[in-house]
C-alpha cells in the first residue's frame, strides 16, 4: 500500500474544523485550552452557525482566543466578558454569543459581571476554564486555587486563614434562578472530551431555543503553572481538583440535578486539602 492509497478521502477519519484558523496556538503543550477551543469550534461548525457567532475573549492565557476561532470576536477588559456578551446578545438576538474566560477573569475580577449576567438569565453561553491558577502572569493564586496548593503568591500553600476559601462559583451560580444549564466537565481523556463537547452542544442549543443562560465549566490542568509534566498534571487534577470540583451536570433545564447536594457544596463547602 502506498501513501497515495492511504490518503484517499474515503480513508479520512478526522479533519480540523474550518471554524478554527490555521494560526499556531501559543498554549503550552499539555494545556486544556486547545482542546476546549477545538470542541467549541466543532459545535459551531456542526450547528452551521459560523456566520452568526460572536465570541468574547478574556484577559489571561486565552486572551488571544480570537486569533484561533474563525468567527467574529471581541476582546474584553479583564473580567468584563459577561457584560459585553449581555449587550452583544440583546442588540443581536438572532446571533449566538459565547464568552470564554479563565478562573481569575470570571471568578475574581469579573465576579459581579458573572453573577449578574447569570442572574438576569441572559440568553448566552458561558465557557469557564478552571485550572486553579493565574497562568498568563506566572502562576499566582486564583480564586479557585485549592487549600494547601502552592502558587507564586502562596509559596507555602493556600492558607484559609490568610487567603480565604476556594470559590465554587459554578455551584453558586447554579443556585440563581436565571441559569438554565450548569455543568462541570473536563478535557483530559478522550471520553471526557466527548462529554464536554456534548455539554457545549447543549449550551449552544439552549441559546438557539431562547432557553436562557448556559454555563459550562471545564476543569483543566496547567502543567506549566503547577510545575509538572502534562501526564503528572492530569493525575494531580484527578486526585486533587475533582474532589473539590466534582465533574458532572449540576443544573439541567433549570433544575438542580438529582443527587447533587448543592446545599452541601455551597453552604458546608467541604474541602479536600492538597496532598
Amino acid at each position: 500500500m502506498t501513501t497515495a492509497d492511504i490518503i484517499k478521502p474515503e480513508n479520512l477519519v478526522y479533519t480540523k474544523t474550518k471554524v478554527l484558523t490555521d494560526a499556531v496556538m501559543h498554549y503550552c503543550p499539555g494545556c486544556g485550552h486547545g482542546t476546549a477551543h477545538r470542541i467549541i469550534a466543532e459545535v459551531i461548525e456542526e450547528m452551521g452557525i459560523q456566520d452568526k457567532t460572536i465570541g468574547i475573549a478574556p484577559v489571561g492565557c486565552s486572551v488571544l482566543a480570537y486569533n484561533y476561532f474563525d468567527v467574529d470576536f471581541q476582546e474584553a477588559a479583564h473580567g468584563r466578558a459577561p457584560a459585553l456578551a449581555t449587550a452583544a446578545k440583546r442588540l443581536n438576538p438572532d446571533r449566538f454569543v459565547f464568552t470564554y474566560q479563565g478562573d481569575g477573569d470570571l471568578a475574581a475580577i469579573g465576579t459581579a459581571e458573572t453573577i449578574h449576567a447569570c442572574n438576569r438569565g441572559e440568553n448566552i453561553t458561558m465557557i469557564f476554564i478552571n485550572n486553579g491558577i493565574y497562568g498568563m502572569t506566572g502562576g499566582q493564586m486564583a480564586p479557585t486555587t485549592l487549600v494547601g496548593m502552592k502558587s507564586a503568591t502562596t509559596p507555602y500553600g493556600r492558607n484559609v486563614a490568610l487567603n480565604g476559601y476556594p470559590l465554587r462559583i459554578t455551584e453558586l451560580i447554579a443556585t440563581l434562578p436565571g441559569t438554565r444549564f450548569v455543568t462541570r466537565q473536563s478535557v483530559h481523556t478522550p471520553a471526557a472530551v466527548r462529554k464536554a463537547k456534548t455539554a457545549i452542544r447543549k449550551a449552544f442549543e439552549n441559546q438557539k431555543d431562547n432557553k436562557g443562560l448556559s454555563f459550562v465549566e471545564i476543569v483543566s490542568s496547567c502543567n506549566s503553572g503547577w510545575k509538572m509534566t502534562p501526564v503528572q498534571a492530569n493525575h494531580w487534577m484527578e486526585e486533587n481538583m475533582f474532589p473539590n470540583y466534582p465533574i458532572g451536570d449540576i443544573k439541567v433545564d433549570g433544575k438542580i440535578v438529582e443527587g447533587v447536594d448543592i446545599n452541601r457544596l455551597v453552604v458546608d463547602h467541604p474541602l479536600t486539602v492538597v496532598k
Binding site: 460572536i54 468574547i56 471581541q74 474584553a76 477588559a77 468584563r80 457584560a83 459585553l84 456578551a85 449581555t86 449587550a87 452583544a88 440583546r90 442588540l91 443581536n92 446571533r95 459581579a112 459581571e113 449578574h116
Partner: peptide
C-alpha cells in the same frame, strides 16, 4: 463598569 462594558459589547457589533 458593567454599563460601559455593555456599551463596548453592543457597539462593537
Amino acid at each position: 463598569m458593567a454599563s460601559i462594558n455593555m456599551v463596548y459589547g453592543g457597539a462593537a457589533t
